[in-house]
Design a protein around this nucleic acid. Sequence first.
DNA 1: TATGGATACAACCATTGGTTGTGATCGGGC
DNA 2: GCCCGATCACAACCAATGGTTGTATCCATA
Lengths: 311, 311
Amino acid sequence: MDLDTVRTFVAAADAGQFQEAAAELAVTQQAVSKRIAALERHVGVRLFTRTPRGAELTIDGQAFLPHARELLRVAERAVASVRTGHRPLRVDMLTSRSAASGLMRGFHRAHPEIDLDVVMLFDIEKAVAAIRSGAIDASFRAVAMPGRPLPEDIASVRVLDEPLQLLVGPAHALASARSVTVAQLAGHRIWMPGLVPGTEWTAYYDDLVAEFGLTIEATGPNFGSDALLDTIADTPTLATFMGGQTRLVWPAGHGLRRIPVTDPMPVYPHSLLWHRDNPHPALATLRAHLAATAAGHGAAGTWVPDWAIPR
Amino acid sequence: MDLDTVRTFVAAADAGQFQEAAAELAVTQQAVSKRIAALERHVGVRLFTRTPRGAELTIDGQAFLPHARELLRVAERAVASVRTGHRPLRVDMLTSRSAASGLMRGFHRAHPEIDLDVVMLFDIEKAVAAIRSGAIDASFRAVAMPGRPLPEDIASVRVLDEPLQLLVGPAHALASARSVTVAQLAGHRIWMPGLVPGTEWTAYYDDLVAEFGLTIEATGPNFGSDALLDTIADTPTLATFMGGQTRLVWPAGHGLRRIPVTDPMPVYPHSLLWHRDNPHPALATLRAHLAATAAGHGAAGTWVPDWAIPR
DNA sequence: TATGGATACAACCATTGGTTGTGATCGGGC
DNA sequence: GCCCGATCACAACCAATGGTTGTATCCATA
């Protein structure tokens, strides 16, 4: 199906005749007739009843019309999403399961008129480069990697500390614990597939391991969260970490348990990063929104790596 | 833009390489390469970075991807809307401003999983013919026209009485009335553009006029409700009728008043019509929903034309 | 009955979009 | 260090698509 054809259909439906639609589209009446005929062949039903006084929609045509309009709307938004200049606000985040996703959903609820696009870059290096090039407008990240300070032209503000929670299956030794201390985790196998060396996400866990003597296995390919959850549910000796803000589509019948970690409570510090010179108006709106709805961060009893604390 | 091209883009993005996408789509790798290049030319940005080991999305490509998927989803629904067989439930109603529209919105909220299409046919004759032919599944109408009983194979149930309200501008003599009786309306000019002879909607007003001695002017072309509202607001001697359930997008600053009509209260009786043999599962759901949420009808003190009361 | 305005069909042709064949580039294995 | 295999891009060719012009048909209206 060709969108020019759909556009022609909508124009003809609005005009009530092919000829006027043809004039609007700057083609001949015969071309419109052919396009409509092709569309009818494609969907398999007659969309117009032709009369010597014009063409009016059949019932099928009437039913199809709103869908056709929607199709054109979506197509326009699709093109707008990559148009340089006045394009939707483009935000990068770690994963769709991170707390940043929740923040952006809240922002979208508060400002449904602002068009958003979400991308996921590899690490903070790529994110910073993309922000500087203007390819993205903002990024939710831990502010920096060990020994790599943020460049001067990138601004950042800490927006949310996301507590880590332990995820275990029903047969796990800690399954019935109401909370666990970090010290209690020593000796347990914690599995985090998909941790890629060189990312700040991995640097975070490296620090956690180094400071508290945990064992985290990053082995094995990442087959997605569904597969991870399946394995965790079925393996009594395996646990994993998960962001505490995550609203999972909870698989039924798994018996998975989420257990808060305390003493200290490891939190992943999400900051918003943006370019100081970025003039996108929606960026200012986003910053204002985050400032207004900011949850507590830097609270006592929480732990973050040294390098992730902006000074 | 061509949807086959969009499909190709999504396939290539999923596969991570053109070759595999080409195999899926049963074309050559060169064809995929050309299509992607054409799409990139169309939107004006590079969507993939080509490597000797495949092709991965650029940031623009990442932003475009969900829009592309949405585009394909919408296209599929568009085609499904006219597919004979298992198509969305297709319902006919008088106008988008009638109470039937509100009922269908309620149904959609209660059953968002059921796909709906709304069409508007000319009159009940056309609606009955469409129901018998299977072109539509149900219709919200006054059950019959004077002297034209419903055919045996069409079932109907009264679902809502919609009270008529008087709509006047701020300078109208009745502007400050809290309610008016039908008798008080005699002598006032009531304007109803767009009343087409031969429809049951017009038959309703004919009966109202005949029984209570009102003057209703149906003259002039119907330029849509906006124009009607403008005229009513500006003309001190003109009023119009409007369904009491209507949730208008109320034009600001018009000072329009809605006044209930009493003694008796004229109501427009909406019934649901359907074919007894129609097996569409969503039709049963709709009937059950309407039965469960049915508002009162046939209440004392209301008026409907004789012929509109099913016996 | 002639006319004007509408769509459909036919013939023609430029352009599009597919295939095949080939070249360039990079990573991995030997 | 070199070659092989896998990838994508480019060129040439060709069929099919989709546009235009010209014409036929239909019907409401004067």
